[in-house]
Design a protein around this nucleic acid. Sequence first.
RNA 1: CGGAGUGUAGCUCAGCAUGGCUUAGAGCGCUGCGUUCGGGACGCAGAGGCCGGAGGUUCGAAUCCUCUCACUCCGACCA
Length: 585
Amino acid sequence: MRVSKLFGETLREAPADVELKSHEALLRGGYVRMLAAGIFSYLPLAHRSLKKIENILREEMNRIGGQELTMPVVHPADIWKRTGRWDAIDEVLLRFRDRWDRDMALALTHEEVVASLAATEVKSYRQLPCLVYQLQTKFRDEVRPRGGLIRTREFVMKDSYSLDRDEAGMLKQYEAHYKAYLRMFARAGLPVTVVKSDVGLMGGSVAHEYMYVTPIGEDTLAICDACGYVANAEVAKFCAEPIDGGTPLPLEKVSTPDVTSIESVADFLGVEKSKIAKAVFFMAGFGPDAPEKLVFAIVRGDMDVNFTGLKNLTKATTLRPAREEEISAVGAVAGFASPVGIKKGAALVVVDELVARSANLVCGANEKDFHLLNSNCGRDYEPDMTAQIAIVYEGAGCPECGAALRVANGVEVGNIFQLGTKYSNALGAQFVDEDGEMKPVIMGSYGIGVGRLLACLAEKYNDEFGLALPVSVAPFEALITAVSKNAETKALVEKYYEALNEAGVETLFDDRDASPGVKFADCDLRGIPMRIIISDRSIKAGGAEFKLRTEKESRIVPLENLADEVSGTLRSMKQALLDAADAVG
RNA sequence: CGGAGUGUAGCUCAGCAUGGCUUAGAGCGCUGCGUUCGGGACGCAGAGGCCGGAGGUUCGAAUCCUCUCACUCCGACCA
């Protein structure tokens, strides 16, 4: 490919509102352009990188027996209604009506379609196990797209679905994915951490997420460096000692004028934040026909509520922060609220187990400007549920070994779910087993965001000059150009451009009549792993100048060896990534 | 959805508080010619904008008012 013909310009300056290095690097390198919030065009360079990533995913999927297929992006509402997700998923499922006024949706995942396919295609246990996958566009109407390429609304996903006759078979395919994913990320050059995760809108039982650990990540992880325990904060357990408040003392009402925040209560009364029972309010929904219910969550004043954990615990289909009038409707007073004196059944009182085990905590009096001292769970109020609903925090005890947990951020680049029979039951995916009985297909679902993977790579592999992607995913492997006005030298570059192509090296030829500085800068911005310059100076020195994007120094390679040298170096760079893959899976 | 902010040339931005100094500007990029040629060169000439959109106020609006659209950021867990 000649640079003069390449569609997509490099940018001298990045647009002002770009925050992330990955976004800036991809924009400046001429990889992507934004069309609308969270909706991007992928220019030829990005397209090539994405195809390379896709091929890695394809090879690894095929390696574990996957068969590629393509499923539709536009779905009739019916299949989503049958699994209950039409109602369970609110805003992220983009809905519309077709010309016959029928409800339709844009695919945000494909469990429903796979299950309906399985319903017609899988009849006998002889057809199982089975593994299908696709590389295809998803649309998720995110409440708030942000972070450039990290969270987009439209994106390509590698999604695979395992079909099995029993649990053991599904576990085997789950394991296979677990390893295949490690291989994929290793081949792409992205370090990942596997964490236990919430099953979220997929349902099912067990799930893992593949996280690229980075401060810009939107997910929070709890990591134990001592024993290796890692979990998404949404599901992370931890141990902490209850506050020893001594023997229960009588309740005492104290005046706390205008003291509404935990901070100010602690200051005003001169107590630790940990000795205050903090009330947080949510409205929980339980399906389209049931009324929303106020959830009264109580955690220690120095801790926060685990939103996802609370949602799962209460089995709510939706959970949102409550408004002030919804709080006062049950007799609580925002700013001075507690479950003490709240009518039984008016709200769902969920108490964190640490609060339940701690004596004599400060809480609100449900009366403006008053708090209560010495509240005791069980004596002064009766919880509807008691569980760990506080979210993990830096330094909390590891649930496995007790050492202090570390909290870090991560970007979820892949996930694997053990689904079970939720979708097969809803859509009638049954088969006749060896014993002659009809049984539901056991499913698993596995996803990797292709664009997000590229974004994470761009986030990891960039420097002040632009991108520096690994060879396995870089759009081109080498760039060749002349630094000379000498026609003979220029002709030589043409010749060796051809030679590199013939040697199978994906070469970009900067044939522009631009100044060297411009060519160097563009080559760096585009993140081409190898740069080959032929100049009068290099010829005098004995050949072409050869430099890796990741290194400062260049060296001279004799022209007659150029193609061999380049493809040899390339081969060993690629092999290193394959070796890394073999090492992990 | 709540809050804050930004929309002027392909990109980065000035001009807007105090309407008329503008026939709407600068730098970069782009086109042509010439000079240059190892880390975003230089000179000359040129093209390029309904000042996001719609209404309004006014003799006069990029500038003031109203509405609208788009984008960015923060929040959507504070008793």
